[in-house]
Design a protein around this nucleic acid. Structure first.
Lengths: 224, 224
DNA sequence: GCTAATTATATTGTCGACAATATTGTCGAC
DNA sequence: GTCGACAATATTGTCGACAATATAATTAGC
């Protein structure tokens, strides 16, 4: 039986607003008007505030007492920090994974990525970003540490926008695909040093590119 | 001029409830009654819910649709995960710090800890835990990465309770003090490898001890 | 007596109203 | 015209009431 359980207003507001915050449909520093959002999503302020509170705790929005909620800034410094932590956490993940050596999970990741590659040409940019995020999350999950996965999901939400801009460049889509293949193969092979090296290179490159496309991102945000 | 700016109900509720959640004044899995909390803190449900929402996003509470907010569980698995990530993040911090080599900040940490040691005998357990957390946070701050600091603060909140239990043992208070001294000296000396080694040892020991005292912690929670 | 369906109660989810505060607009002094 | 004080407006913060849902108590059937 299909379990419909329609979600609450607060829940759907959270999802909608989270998506908007992630993708900078709000402009950096912009003040969000609760009444307006309530009208837009056809509900009262209470569930809206609930969602806004959660999002500000996640850092996707900023809250200031008696002033309300604002869109977060998009700054070099922040992107750099996120990428740095991401590197620490993902390297930790594969080290841990290689030690534990759960081949099953790894094979699934390889299969998953092979399937993505097969349909890569027909994927929209958003879809590819989603699969990219998923690939890295699967690596993290293989390390069997809930906290690590949660943190990386958090980081993904914050980097989603710049990643999206970055993967609009065809060359980098290609690069992502091949590098992922290399990484997963080295992990499966149990070559800790090689795997680390390739992952590090992949993530540092990705960080550089994120910073590089940041101006494009800002332009995009303010262009419409 | 003293700026008093008395905080809002939501804010004070957040602080109070956060402290209770951190220290397991609620029992693991316990359901929190919003009306009761509102009565206890002398306010309406709105600011209470606001605080509870934030806390559940932080993972200090758990939220289930239409059932409300519950105290988080206290599990071996969770503690282990937290300690593992903490290790990754703190090691990353000192690596980064040693490279950047901001001697000033490091000297301040050394001074801070020297002062803590001086008054160690007269400190309550909670105070020592606070200073312990602060020492590690200062190391993280020296690495100049906001995200890292936020994540470690998050982890601290989750580990606070077991740390408190652990530092009730005199021998371990002593151990903490001397190990911190060693670590900061190696970092200041710029001995990356040594510093890493000592920090790793310190944190892995600390993780083992956290797991070891967990039964004591549970007993404490359920004894009163 | 035990289980399942039904009813009663308690609790969360949402709303609209008002209070507290911040922001904007207006006026007058210079 | 510019600045500051004051008034007008808009926005957030909090409340109490009610609706929707979950939990507990009660009854009916066996």
């Amino acid at each position: 039986m299909a379990r419909h359980k329609r979600s609450s207003h607060a829940e759907s507001a959270y999802k909608a607003l989270r998506e908007m915050a992630k993708t900078f449909e709000f402009k950096p520093g912009e003040r969000l008007n609760e009444l307006e959002l309530a009208a837009r999503l056809k509900m009262s302020r209470s569930p809206i505030r609930e969602a806004l509170n959660r999002l500000s705790t996640e850092g996707l929005l900023v809250w200031r007492p008696n002033q309300g909620f604002f869109c977060r800034q998009l700054r070099v410094r922040e992107i750099r920090s996120l990428c740095e932590i991401r590197l620490d956490l993902e390297l930790g993940a594969i080290r841990s994974t290689i030690k534990a050596a759960d081949k099953g999970a790894l094979k699934k990741i390889k299969k998953f990525w092979r399937e993505v590659v097969a349909k890569a040409a027909s994927l929209t940019n958003e879809e590819l970003v989603g699969y990219d995020e998923e690939f890295h999350l699967m690596l993290a999950r293989a390390a069997d540490n809930e906290v690590r996965v949660r943190f990386l999901e958090h980081i993904n939400a914050h980097l989603n926008f710049v990643r999206r801009i970055n993967l609009e460049i065809e060359e980098r889509r290609q690069q992502t695909i091949t590098e992922h293949n290399t990484i997963i193969d080295e992990i499966i092979g149990g070559h800790a040093t090689k795997a680390e090296e390739y992952l590090r290179k992949h993530l540092m490159m990705s960080a550089d590119q994120a910073l590089e496309v940041l101006p494009t991102g800002l332009l995009r945000i303010y262009s419409d």
